[in-house]
Amino acid sequence: MELTRRDAVAALATLGVGGAAALGARNWQRDDRSDVVDDELVRNTLVAAAEVVYPSDVSGTATFVETFLEGRLERDDHARGLRETTAEFNDVSEQWHGDEFPALSQADRDRMLREVGADTAEEIPDGTLAERVRYYVVNDLLLALYSSPTGGELVGIENPQGHPGGTDTYQRGPEA
């Protein structure tokens, strides 16, 4: 199933960030926060992680994640935690696998996420690296996907919790 920009905007609207007007204002190439990590790496890390945590028959992931991320970076606290976590995570990736996370093969990325403990960790925004990777990377991606209409549809609910899909869908039967 194809994820669209509309899905990302819908997911963002759900979480109250950006809105269509604010999107596109950010220039990915601009690297004005190089003290922490450049947002290019944040983006590549999230896109690379999405390829692992999203189901395999989902396409359009890169655009979806980029659009979603633009909105997420508008929220200062979240952006700070996300940048720091991504930086640390890639450092560890360098140490353990000799390369930054986005450069690893998909199988190694899956392994890396598990090695760091993000599969079993509870999400905690100011917790250990495992807990933060779970919060800012894994769960943020899952939240974006499964509160978007396309993500909901994958499971069979076209108006998932958190998405303002109106008051018709709950009345409809499965064949409608």
Partner: peptide
């Protein structure tokens, strides 16, 4: 379960997660 909440609380992802959500929901 609400699929979103269920997704965030598990220790699976990818196809395995989607299969679980489909099993649980509906």
């Amino acid at each position: 379960p609400s699929p979103v909440e269920s997704a965030l609380g598990g220790d699976d992802w990818g196809d395995e997660l989607l299969e679980r959500l489909r099993r649980e929901y509906g």
